[in-house]
């Protein structure tokens, strides 16, 4: 970047100055010569391809190019195009910024968001679901059916990718040859430091889902990223020592089945107005909020498995 150039007359500034002073044409003339060359090459290829058909020779190959070169309208169109693009961008951003002025102030009490629905959730979520982080109480309990469907979508997506990309055992190339060797030294050194921390942070986000921002989906994504980093740095065989296909199947299917059972229990008790046997516990404790903590962990396991399975299936066609 800091190399000294010998030809300052070719720099952008010099060319711009020359253009201002009228000493030079625009650099667009290069496009025309490129275009001519391209046409020549294409004509040659055409002639080669049609030699044995005994067709009469085509017209003068330069005629098209000459006609285009004389069209100065093309150059003007290019200039107009860039000017119009900038103007359009400015107009759109001005419109958007103008729209922002109509929005209510951040945190204003009379904004349309703060209606009775939000109020109801904020007031009652603590005592009804036992969560400090109301968002988790919302997505896992008030709208638990929705999250249940989302988790199934993840499962089905993994199955679809497996159908497309999984390689059969007998078709596999030899393990030693097909297995990508681990990354280089720098990556391995950093991964040795970062992977345990990523796992720890992911688990923290997972089990604190009902107390602080986070929950099953984000914590699972962090753990999945940690798994991907581990296998990228140390190779798939290293990851398979603690996370091979058998364990993957058990975790993936087991967590979904357990989650289904828990959510069915939730829906059954909720619909029939029966009191749940699981106590909600004290608000703010780590072991509290009834079934939300186990459901968070199960969702996290599902998401982590999905992420790692995608990476591994796309990279080597198996887990």
């Amino acid at each position: 970047m800091s190399r000294i150039r010998n030809n300052y007359e070719n720099s952008f500034r010099a060319r711009f100055l020359r253009y201002i002073m009228g000493e030079d044409e625009l650099p667009e003339k290069n496009y025309m010569s490129d275009f001519r060359k391209q046409i020549d090459i294409e004509k040659e290829e055409d002639e080669k391809a049609t030699e044995h058909y005994l067709v009469p020779p085509l017209e003068d190959p330069m005629s098209d190019a000459k006609r285009y070169a004389e069209m100065s309208g093309l150059r003007w169109f290019r200039r107009l195009y860039s000017v119009m693009a900038v103007l359009l961008c400015i107009a759109i951003s001005a419109l958007l910024i103008y729209n922002v002025t109509f929005m209510p102030r951040f945190g204003a009490s009379d904004s349309p968001m703060n209606n009775e629905v939000t109020e109801r959730y904020l007031e009652k979520a603590g005592e009804e679901t036992g969560t400090v982080n109301v968002v988790t109480g919302l997505i896992l309990q008030y709208r638990g059916f929705d999250t249940f469907g989302e988790t199934h979508v993840l499962f089905i997506a993994t199955i679809a990718v497996m159908i497309l990309l999984k390689i059969k055992k007998k078709d596999k190339p030899e393990e030693a040859a097909g297995e990508p060797v681990g990354g280089d030294v720098i990556l391995r050194t950093i991964a040795r430091v970062l992977v345990p921390m990523i796992f720890l942070f992911g688990f923290y986000v997972l089990v604190n889902g009902h107390l602080s921002p986070g929950g099953g989906f984000s914590g699972g994504a962090v753990i999945g990223a940690g798994l991907i980093l581990h296998s990228a740095a140390f190779g798939f065989s290293a990851t398979a020592r603690f996370f091979d296909e058998k364990i993957y199947d058990i975790i993936k299917v087991g967590s979904l089945v357990l989650y289904s059972m828990l959510i069915i229990y939730y829906l059954f008790t909720g619909a029939n107005d029966i009191d749940s046997v699981v106590p909600l516990g004290k608000l703010g404790n780590i072991i509290s909020s009834g079934l939300i903590l186990p459901i968070n962990i199960l969702v996290g396991a599902e998401v982590a498995c999905t992420m790692y399975a995608f990476y591994s299936l796309f990279r080597k066609g198996g887990i």
Partner: peptide, 9 residues
């Protein structure tokens, strides 16, 4: 061999 740098841009 400078010169490439400036020409093609």
């Amino acid at each position: 061999d400078e010169g490439k740098d400036g020409k093609e841009e």
